[in-house]
Simulated scan of single mutants.
Amino acid sequence: MYAMERHQLIERLVVQDGRVAVVDLADRFGVTTETVRRDLDQLERAGALRRVHGGAVARERTSLVEPSLVERSSQRGAAKQAIAGRALDVLGDAFRGSVYIDAGTTTAAVATLLPARLAETDGSAEVVTHAMSVAGVLAGAPRLSLTVIGGRVRGLTGAAVGSHTVRAIEGLRPDVAFIGTNGISAGFGLSTPDPEEAAVKRAIVQSSRRVIVVSDAQKFDAELLVAFAGLDDIDVVVADRAPGDTLGAALHEAGTEVWTA
């Protein structure tokens, strides 16, 4: 088996199982543990996983790991575009209403596709965001007006946070919110590493009439430090593949729809 083939399979196993062990991989591939460690080192440098003692875990599996906006922007671009396109189906034809767009790279993909979708479906929207990347995409776009909520901007995510941001969001009642997450699990709900980001996301979820979570499947079953919403707070989860049995059953019990891109 070539190194590239091993790397692809390791990435798939990390997504499916959340972690891999050096010894198990060496047995599976019929190579030395040193070879596997080199493979894991290369995959960590590529941002595909995080090394831990004896193996590796998905980057989202450690409770404080939070890749930067730049790092995340370069990963899984096609999947994020597909998820964003599917998520915008929630607006239907001739949408006339308010939309909140959360910070994140998948939500930024929603923002990128939104003007064209509004034009195609003869819609219009009042868009609100606290994310600088989203604001940059939508500033001056046709068929929508844009409100940007301020606050202290976290360099890691390019998003406004803090009490001013939370209070401003709490005073809104958007029709639809597109929100991102770092993790979604049956037992812990939706979570993120940073308490201030969690406070902002919690305010968005609680203020919005309909909450649409956009998330690639790598976030499934991950639990980060701070929970900001329960599964029953969410109306639709849009992802690039269906969740596993445990999470899928929990979402069904919570009354949350699952859409795949």
Rank of each mutant, 00 (worst) to 15 (best):
residue 4 M to G: 10
residue 7 H to V: 05
residue 7 H to T: 08
residue 9 L to E: 10
residue 10 I to G: 10
residue 16 Q to H: 12
residue 20 V to T: 08
residue 21 A to R: 13
residue 22 V to A: 08
residue 24 D to N: 04
residue 26 A to T: 06
residue 28 R to N: 02
residue 28 R to Q: 00
residue 35 T to K: 14
residue 36 V to Y: 13
residue 36 V to Q: 12
residue 37 R to V: 09
residue 40 L to T: 04
residue 40 L to Q: 10
residue 44 E to Y: 10
residue 48 A to F: 11
residue 48 A to P: 13
residue 54 G to I: 03
residue 55 G to D: 03
residue 56 A to W: 09
residue 57 V to F: 13
residue 61 R to Q: 15
residue 62 T to L: 14
residue 63 S to Q: 13
residue 67 P to G: 06
residue 67 P to E: 01
residue 69 L to V: 01
residue 69 L to I: 02
residue 70 V to Y: 00
residue 71 E to S: 05
residue 78 A to V: 12
residue 82 A to H: 06
residue 95 F to I: 01
residue 98 S to W: 07
residue 106 T to V: 07
residue 111 A to M: 13
residue 114 L to P: 07
residue 114 L to R: 12
residue 118 L to R: 03
residue 119 A to N: 09
residue 119 A to H: 01
residue 122 D to Y: 09
residue 126 E to S: 11
residue 126 E to I: 11
residue 130 H to D: 06
residue 132 M to H: 12
residue 142 P to M: 07
residue 144 L to S: 07
residue 147 T to A: 14
residue 152 R to E: 15
residue 154 R to V: 02
residue 155 G to V: 06
residue 156 L to R: 15
residue 159 A to D: 05
residue 160 A to P: 13
residue 161 V to T: 13
residue 162 G to S: 15
residue 164 H to P: 09
residue 165 T to G: 11
residue 166 V to G: 10
residue 168 A to Q: 08
residue 169 I to Q: 08
residue 169 I to L: 00
residue 174 P to Q: 05
residue 180 G to S: 10
residue 182 N to K: 07
residue 184 I to R: 14
residue 189 G to W: 02
residue 190 L to C: 04
residue 193 P to R: 14
residue 194 D to E: 07
residue 194 D to K: 06
residue 198 A to E: 03
residue 203 A to W: 01
residue 203 A to Q: 03
residue 203 A to V: 01
residue 204 I to G: 05
residue 205 V to F: 03
residue 205 V to M: 00
residue 209 R to E: 00
residue 210 R to M: 00
residue 211 V to D: 01
residue 212 I to D: 09
residue 213 V to M: 05
residue 217 A to M: 14
residue 217 A to Q: 12
residue 219 K to P: 06
residue 221 D to H: 02
residue 222 A to C: 12
residue 225 L to W: 13
residue 228 F to K: 09
residue 236 V to I: 03
residue 237 V to Q: 08
residue 238 V to I: 02
residue 239 A to I: 03
residue 243 P to A: 07
residue 247 L to E: 09
residue 247 L to P: 10
residue 248 G to A: 15
residue 249 A to V: 04
residue 251 L to H: 05
residue 254 A to W: 05
residue 260 T to P: 15
residue 261 A to Y: 04
